[in-house]
Protein backbone atom coordinates (compact mmCIF):
# COMPACT_ATOMS: atom_id res chain seq x y z
CA UNK A 1 0.00 0.00 0.00
CA UNK A 2 1.37 3.43 -0.79
CA UNK A 3 1.85 5.85 2.08
CA UNK A 4 -0.51 8.78 1.88
CA UNK A 5 -0.89 11.32 4.62
CA UNK A 6 -3.65 13.82 5.14
CA UNK A 7 -2.88 17.16 6.69
CA UNK A 8 -5.26 17.24 9.63
CA UNK A 9 -4.10 14.54 12.03
CA UNK A 10 -0.65 13.78 13.45
CA UNK A 11 1.52 11.77 11.09
CA UNK A 12 2.43 9.11 13.66
CA UNK A 13 -1.28 8.33 14.12
CA UNK A 14 -1.68 7.98 10.37
CA UNK A 15 1.33 5.64 10.29
CA UNK A 16 -0.25 3.53 13.03
CA UNK A 17 -3.49 3.32 11.06
CA UNK A 18 -1.64 2.46 7.90
CA UNK A 19 0.29 -0.39 9.51
CA UNK A 20 -2.81 -1.68 11.31
CA UNK A 21 -4.62 -1.81 7.99
CA UNK A 22 -1.69 -3.57 6.33
CA UNK A 23 -1.80 -6.20 9.08
CA UNK A 24 -5.59 -6.55 8.91
CA UNK A 25 -5.66 -7.10 5.13
CA UNK A 26 -2.81 -9.58 5.37
CA UNK A 27 -0.19 -7.54 3.56
CA UNK A 28 1.92 -8.09 6.65
CA UNK A 29 1.50 -11.65 7.92
CA UNK A 30 1.86 -12.91 11.47
CA UNK A 31 5.55 -13.17 12.31
CA UNK A 32 6.74 -11.11 9.31
CA UNK A 33 9.87 -9.06 9.85
CA UNK A 34 9.55 -5.32 9.45
CA UNK A 35 12.09 -3.09 7.70
CA UNK A 36 14.26 -1.00 10.00
CA UNK A 37 12.93 2.30 11.32
CA UNK A 38 15.21 4.16 8.98
CA UNK A 39 14.17 2.16 5.93
CA UNK A 40 10.49 2.52 6.75
CA UNK A 41 10.93 6.24 7.36
CA UNK A 42 12.66 6.69 4.02
CA UNK A 43 9.97 4.66 2.27
CA UNK A 44 7.16 6.70 3.83
CA UNK A 45 9.22 9.91 3.50
CA UNK A 46 8.73 10.79 7.13
CA UNK A 47 11.05 11.61 9.97
CA UNK A 48 12.64 8.53 11.63
CA UNK A 49 11.59 9.83 15.06
CA UNK A 50 7.97 9.93 13.90
CA UNK A 51 8.23 6.37 12.57
CA UNK A 52 9.83 5.26 15.82
CA UNK A 53 7.01 6.80 17.81
CA UNK A 54 4.38 4.99 15.73
CA UNK A 55 6.16 1.64 16.00
CA UNK A 56 6.58 1.98 19.77
CA UNK A 57 2.88 2.58 20.10
CA UNK A 58 2.05 -0.47 17.98
CA UNK A 59 4.41 -2.45 20.16
CA UNK A 60 2.63 -1.27 23.27
CA UNK A 61 -0.63 -2.43 21.69
CA UNK A 62 0.95 -5.85 21.20
CA UNK A 63 0.73 -5.80 17.40
CA UNK A 64 4.49 -5.69 16.98
CA UNK A 65 7.30 -7.09 19.03
CA UNK A 66 11.02 -6.51 19.07
CA UNK A 67 13.59 -9.22 19.29
CA UNK A 68 16.90 -7.93 20.46
CA UNK A 69 19.38 -7.79 17.57
CA UNK A 70 17.00 -9.53 15.14
CA UNK A 71 14.62 -6.62 14.59
CA UNK A 72 10.94 -5.91 14.75
CA UNK A 73 8.21 -8.39 13.86
CA UNK A 74 4.45 -8.57 13.40
CA UNK A 75 2.78 -10.34 16.29
CA UNK A 76 2.29 -14.09 15.97
CA UNK A 77 -0.93 -13.87 17.91
CA UNK A 78 -3.45 -14.58 15.11
CA UNK A 79 -6.36 -13.99 17.48
CA UNK A 80 -5.10 -10.43 18.03
CA UNK A 81 -4.93 -9.92 14.28
CA UNK A 82 -8.49 -11.22 13.81
CA UNK A 83 -9.51 -8.90 16.59
CA UNK A 84 -7.86 -5.96 14.89
CA UNK A 85 -9.65 -6.71 11.63
CA UNK A 86 -12.98 -6.77 13.43
CA UNK A 87 -12.17 -3.54 15.19
CA UNK A 88 -11.36 -1.81 11.89
CA UNK A 89 -14.58 -3.17 10.37
CA UNK A 90 -16.46 -1.81 13.39
CA UNK A 91 -15.02 1.64 12.77
CA UNK A 92 -16.22 1.53 9.16
CA UNK A 93 -19.71 0.47 10.28
CA UNK A 94 -19.87 3.27 12.84
CA UNK A 95 -18.92 5.72 10.17
CA UNK A 96 -21.51 4.34 7.76
CA UNK A 97 -24.30 4.51 10.33
CA UNK A 98 -23.31 8.00 11.36
CA UNK A 99 -23.44 9.24 7.77
CA UNK A 100 -26.78 7.53 7.20
CA UNK A 101 -28.17 9.14 10.34
CA UNK A 102 -27.10 12.52 9.00
CA UNK A 103 -29.09 11.73 5.89
CA UNK A 104 -32.10 10.92 8.07
CA UNK A 105 -32.14 7.12 7.93
CA UNK A 106 -32.72 5.01 11.02
CA UNK A 107 -30.33 2.06 11.48
CA UNK A 108 -33.06 -0.32 10.30
CA UNK A 109 -33.73 1.73 7.21
CA UNK A 110 -30.00 1.92 6.55
CA UNK A 111 -29.74 -1.86 6.83
CA UNK A 112 -32.66 -2.34 4.44
CA UNK A 113 -31.04 0.04 1.97
CA UNK A 114 -27.73 -1.75 2.27
CA UNK A 115 -29.33 -5.17 1.67
CA UNK A 116 -31.14 -3.76 -1.31
CA UNK A 117 -27.93 -2.23 -2.61
CA UNK A 118 -26.02 -5.48 -2.40
CA UNK A 119 -29.16 -7.06 -3.83
Amino acid sequence: MPWNFNSSSPIYIQIIEHIKLSIAVGEYKAGDKLLSVRELAAEAEVNPNTMQKALSELERDGLLYTQRTAGRFITEDTAAIANLREQLAGEQLDMFLKKMRQLGYSPDEALALLKNHIG
Binding site: S8, S9, P10
Partner: peptide, 15 residues
Protein backbone atom coordinates in the same frame (compact mmCIF):
# COMPACT_ATOMS: atom_id res chain seq x y z
CA UNK B 1 6.63 19.54 17.37
CA UNK B 2 4.68 18.95 14.17
CA UNK B 3 2.56 16.34 15.93
CA UNK B 4 1.66 18.83 18.69
CA UNK B 5 0.52 21.34 16.10
CA UNK B 6 -1.62 18.78 14.32
CA UNK B 7 -3.05 17.47 17.58
CA UNK B 8 -3.82 20.86 19.06
CA UNK B 9 -5.02 22.64 15.95
CA UNK B 10 -6.29 19.77 13.81
CA UNK B 11 -4.49 21.28 10.88
CA UNK B 12 -1.22 21.00 9.08
CA UNK B 13 1.76 23.24 9.78
CA UNK B 14 1.23 24.71 6.32
CA UNK B 15 -2.37 25.66 7.17
Amino acid sequence: TVDEIREENGKSVDA
